[in-house]
Design a protein around this nucleic acid. Structure first.
Length: 286
DNA sequence: AAATGGTTCAACCGCACAATG
DNA sequence: CCATTGTGCGGTTGAACCATT
C-alpha cells in the first residue's frame, strides 16, 4: 500500500448523507482520497482550522461529505497522527484499556498519543480477535480474558523489559508486594520510570490507569513459587508464571495523567502474537 | 506465472447525541 | 419543545496487498 492510502476506487453509490451537507449526491466523491484532495484539505484546515466540516468541505471545493473530510483529517492528515508499527508498549496499553473499557476505541485512543480509534480498532480486530479465533475461544470469554491477563500481558511486560534491558535503560521498580483484588482482573501499571542519560534517552512513565486492581507480572521466573490462582479460580501453576510487582499508584479519578512519553522507540515494535508466543501459550495451557 | 485465499486498514455506514435556531 | 444540522462513535466493508499453492 502506498503512503497515501490510495487503495480504493471511488464508488459513487451510497445514501450516507444523513446529517451531512446539502451537496447533491451526484456531486459527491467517495473512496480513496487523491493527493490533490489531501492537499486541498490540509491547506484549508491550516487556514481555517478544524471543525464545521460540512461547510469546510463546501468552501474548499471538495466534493466530499463533511464526515469524510473529518475522518480523513483525523485519521490520516493530522500532523501528529502516528500510523503503523504498534509498539509493545502500545499493545500493552491497548490490551489493558480494552480489558477495562471494552470496545471504547476513542477512549482508548486518548491514551495512545497520535493513534486513532480506527487504528486501534483495526489492531484489535486483526490481531487480537484473530488469536482468539485461533485459540478457538471467544474474544469475550473468560478463558481468553484470563489468557490475556495472566499470560499475554505479563509476557508483553517481560518483552518490554527485555527490550529496555538490552539498551541498559530499565529501572523497573521491584517490590515484594502482590496485591490482589478479586473484583478486577486488570493489571495495574503505574509510575514505572525508565530513565537514561544517553542521547537516546528514554523517559517512560506508565501511570496508573486502573481503578482498583492488582499488579502482578511475570518478569522473571523463580521469583515466586506457589501456585497462582486467578480471581476466577483457575490454573497457573508454579513455574508457569512468576510475578513481580511493577508499582502501584491508585488514583481513581485521573485516567489521563502522565501518559506522555510512553511510546518513544519503534525499535521495540513487534507483533504481539508471534510464533514464540503461541508456543509459549500452548506450553502453559498443556 | 497464474490462481487462490487470507490479511490489512482506509473509508464508509448507521446511529446517537449535542448544538442551534 | 421541535426540527435541522453537525459531530462522534463503533461496526462493517472491500480494494489492495501478501502468502501459498
Amino acid at each position: 500500500m502506498d503512503h497515501f492510502g490510495l487503495r480504493r476506487e471511488a464508488s459513487i453509490d451510497s445514501n450516507d448523507t444523513k446529517g451531512d451537507e446539502n451537496n447533491s449526491n451526484l456531486d459527491l466523491k467517495r473512496g480513496s482520497w487523491t493527493v490533490e484532495e489531501d492537499f486541498t484539505l490540509m491547506n484549508h484546515v491550516a487556514v481555517h482550522g478544524e471543525g464545521r466540516w460540512n461547510s469546510l468541505a463546501r468552501s474548499a471545493g471538495l466534493k466530499r461529505t463533511g464526515k469524510s473530510c473529518r475522518l480523513r483529517w483525523l485519521n490520516y492528515l493530522r500532523p501528529d497522527v502516528r500510523r503503523g508499527n504498534i509498539t509493545l508498549e502500545e499493545q500493552l496499553l491497548i490490551l489493558q484499556l480494552h480489558s477495562r473499557w471494552g470496545n471504547r476505541w476513542s477512549k482508548i485512543a486518548q491514551h495512545l498519543p497520535g493513534r486513532t480509534d480506527n487504528e486501534i480498532k483495526n489492531y484489535w480486530r486483526t490481531r487480537v480477535q484473530k488469536q482468539a479465533k485461533q485459540l478457538k475461544c471467544d474474544v469475550n470469554s473468560k478463558e481468553f480474558k484470563d489468557t490475556l491477563n495472566y499470560l499475554w500481558i505479563p509476557r508483553l511486560v517481560e518483552r518490554i523489559q527485555a527490550s529496555y534491558n538490552s539498551n541498559n535503560q530499565v529501572n523497573i521498580q521491584q517490590t515484594n508486594d502482590n496485591i490482589i483484588s478479586n473484583n478486577n482482573i486488570l493489571p495495574n501499571y503505574s509510575s514505572t520510570t525508565t530513565t537514561t542519560s544517553s542521547e537516546n534517552s528514554i523517559v517512560t512513565q506508565i501511570s496508573d490507569m486502573s481503578d482498583n486492581c492488582y499488579t502482578n507480572y511475570p518478569l522473571n521466573q523463580g521469583d515466586y513459587g506457589e501456585i497462582l490462582i486467578s480471581p476466577t479460580g483457575d490454573y497457573f501453576q508454579q513455574g508457569a508464571l512468576d510475578f513481580r510487582t511493577v508499582d502501584i499508584i491508585n488514583d481513581n479519578n485521573n485516567d489521563q495523567q502522565n501518559m506522555s512519553q510512553l511510546f518513544l522507540d519503534d525499535h521495540v515494535s513487534d507483533n504481539l502474537w508471534n510464533i514464540d508466543d503461541l508456543l509459549f501459550l500452548q506450553q502453559q495451557l498443556n
